[in-house]
Every structure is written in C-alpha cells, then in structure tokens.
C-alpha cells in the first residue's frame, strides 16, 4: 500500500518538476525573498497572526512566568538582572553573536544557556526542553516585526563562511545540498508541500508536524534526516554557523516569532 502510494508520489513529483519552469530569484532586481509564512495557506496564516489562536503564545506565556522565577545558586531570576522583558527588544534579531569574553558565536538559545549557567549558576536546561524554548520564545517575541539585523562583527565572517559551505555541500544518501532545494527549487512542490526559501525568521516555531514549539536546530535536524544525512551532534558548532549564514541571507526580513509552520 505504502509502496504503491510512494510510486504515485514519484510520478507526481517528476511530472511537476517537468512542467514547472525554473523560477528562482531574478538577480539584482526586486527582493524576491519570501518567508515560509507566505507559502502557507490562509488558515495557517490566520493561526499565526492571531495571538489568541497561535498555540506558540502558550509558550510565550510560560516564558513570562519563568522570566520572573529565581533559579540556581545565585538565586536570581532573569528579571533581577534584566528588568522588564522590554529590555530584550531587538535582541533576537541580531543573534547568533559573539558574547563578551568569548571568541566564538552562540545563538539565542546558547546565550540564554550562558545566563542560566554563568549568571544564575543553575543546571543547564537541555536543548529542546520546554523551559528553554519558552524563555527563548518570550525573548524572541519582543523582536516580532523587527528586521533581521546581524551584527557588524568581522569576527563572525569565518563562521558565516563555514555555514555557507555547509549550505552548499551535497550530503546524505540522497546527495542533496540545502541549496538544491531551498535556492534552486524553492516555490516548487515536493509531493504537495511547497519548498520554502528556508528563512529563519519565525523561530522558535510552533510546527504542526511536531505538535509543539521547537527550535531552528530541530528544524535543521529534520532537513538533515530528510536527505538521509547523519545530523550533527546536538552541541556541534555547525548549527550556529548555518544559522549565521541563514540570518545574513534573511537580513532585513521581519521576525515573526512564534511563527506557525506545517
């Protein structure tokens, strides 16, 4: 049964890639970048846009509760040092960045982790845990609508360049690069799913497939598994480097967190 359906899919995909003319960005003209939001149907766009219906807002609310809760040996809450969350406005738009006293970049999740371990002197929140995602969503929500603005830090250049190499490298059993799908075939259908341009503007996202909130790292892992590549280790620096490249590619696009995606 599944086999028959699979063969049908194959035929459909081939037929459509035959029919659709290659339509990628026209170089040097209008901005043809599209958020994944624009590739969704009206029902999901409405779900994202309405804060009383967006399930990601449950996690933003949870983040708000955690923001004021003391943790760790320091006995301090995020609010004790940062005050109101309004101080986080624009922060998500410029991560990943290199924290003071360090020479390698961290993403927003990594930055919160630093505060958690160094400033609160608390145990790490596991990557992907509800608490960490909720805090991240609460912070990122403050930048909703603001343009992606990577910092002008020349030290980031080599990391970003490595991210670009990862983006372009063919990998996995299917021997596909990220660019094969998201640059060369964006806008086309993959068995009914529109291939998005892969802009990281909505993270953390409420992905319907996950039925919960998840990070950009989780999303990237899904694509790696999709092309049957071994996902990088959870704490590998490769994710941050890909994120640096993706944020630069999305420079100026508005942040949407918490976005909804299929």
């Amino acid at each position: 049964m599944t086999f028959v359906r699979g063969v049908l899919c194959l035929v459909i995909v081939l037929a459509s890639s035959w029919a659709v003319a290659q339509g990628t960005a026209d170089k040097g003209g209008a901005d043809t970048r599209r958020s994944g939001y624009q590739d969704m149907g009206e029902a999901l766009q409405k779900m994202q846009a309405d804060d009383t219906a967006n399930p990601g807002m449950l996690f933003v609310q949870l983040g708000g509760q955690l923001w004021g809760k003391a943790a760790g040996a320091a006995g301090k809450s995020c609010a004790d040092c940062h005050g109101g969350v309004a101080s986080m406005k624009g922060v998500a738009a410029r991560y990943p960045a290199i924290p003071k006293g360090s020479d390698s970049p961290v993403d927003l999740e990594g930055r919160i982790d630093l505060c958690r371990t160094a400033n609160q002197q608390a145990d790490r929140l596991p990557s992907g845990s509800r608490e960490l995602l909720a805090l991240e969503a609460y912070v990122a929500h403050q930048s909703r609508g603001l343009p992606v603005s990577p910092p002008d830090d020349p030290r980031l250049a080599p990391f970003r360049a490595h991210g670009k190499d990862l983006w372009q490298a063919r990998q996995g059993q299917l021997n596909l690069s990220c660019a094969n799908c998201h640059d060369d075939n964006a806008g086309r259908k993959l068995a009914g799913v529109t291939i998005p341009q892969a802009h990281p503007t909505g993270y953390p996202i409420y992905r319907l497939e996950w039925q919960t909130l998840g990070s950009l790292k989780r999303r990237l892992r899904n694509c790696l598994v999709g092309i049957r590549a071994e996902p990088y280790a959870y704490d590998a620096p490769d994710y941050v480097m890909l994120e640096l490249f993706l944020m630069d590619r999305a420079r100026g696009m508005p942040l949407e967190s918490p976005a909804v995606r299929p």
């Binding site: 009383t52 219906a53 609310q61 509760q65 039925q211």
Partner: peptide
C-alpha cells in the same frame, strides 16, 4: 504554572453576544 490562554472581552453590553476562545497546553 498557568498553561492556559483565555481570550474574552473584559466588558460587554447587556444582551450582546461575546466570543470566548481558549487554548490549553496538552499533548492529546
């Protein structure tokens, strides 16, 4: 931890019809 988001108007005219929306965290 409150894990519910409720949305309804805080005030309403007598006899008017109000919409109540609720979201709750649950795996189902």
């Amino acid at each position: 931890m409150v894990n519910v988001l409720i949305n309804a108007p805080k005030t309403a005219k007598r006899g008017s019809i109000v919409e109540i929306k609720a979201l709750i965290l649950h795996p189902m």
